[in-house]
Design a protein around this nucleic acid. Structure first.
Lengths: 110, 110
DNA sequence: CCTTTACTTAGCCATATGGATAACCATCAA
DNA sequence: TTGATGGTTATCCATATGGCTAAGTAAAGG
């Protein structure tokens, strides 16, 4: 995944309103106004959050009559965990190499 | 984990410079100037990134003489995956319930 | 001591972000 | 067809963010 997409993804998750939206959408599709209802915020402000989530690939929306319906796109979340897991793997690998080095002090280097 | 910490954590990861720093630190401790070296940026600008990573709990630093040494604090990364995994679990749960409902149309509701 | 070296602090600037209003457009219902 | 309803667009505003330079401190090194 490209760096810029990761920026958008992590930035999208770096806001409580947007995380709440994601959490809500795990329960299924919701219309914009129903989604907005629990958030004490003007609709246009709320809309901007939706737009950012959509730009980050975290949600998808479609228009049905005059209402817009939002659905979660959970695949985007794995892009985030993939990056994180890569870091963790690298870290573990380093620890393992260190450990190996300490348990075999006979061959300090090749 | 508290909402505000998650904000800081995800925001910290939403920048390529900072992700590069994290990636670099998976290989072990590095001093500030060595860390900064590959980044085409004035030191004070770079320092601000370090500060944000530290505030997010992603790295820890200590002073040794006049140099500062940075180390990764990978536990912070799991705070992020924990939240993400919770969302994924919720989503899967909903899918499973849906599936169950469809395969057993005899008991539509209790 | 004096000078690097390695950060640190203090400001400054442009752009991005999160919020608001006001006004507009497009259904649906009566 | 006339409201009301559900979004949408266009601005606007304050603060945050990511970059900079200039000037400061503090530990080595000679």
């Amino acid at each position: 995944m490209d760096n810029h997409q990761l920026d958008a993804l992590f930035a999208a998750l770096a806001d409580p309103t947007r995380r709440a939206i994601v959490a809500r959408l795990t329960e299924g599709e919701v219309t914009v106004s129903d989604l907005a209802d629990p958030h004490d915020m003007a609709l246009p402000s709320f809309l901007k959050h939706l737009t950012r989530l959509e730009a980050a690939g975290l949600i998808q929306t479609r228009k049905q009559g005059r209402t817009r319906i939002c659905t979660l796109h959970p695949e985007a979340l794995s892009e985030a965990t993939t990056w994180i897991d890569r870091q963790r793997t690298a870290w573990e690998g380093r620890l393992n190499r260190l450990e190996a080095l300490l348990s075999q002090p006979d061959t300090p280097d090749t």
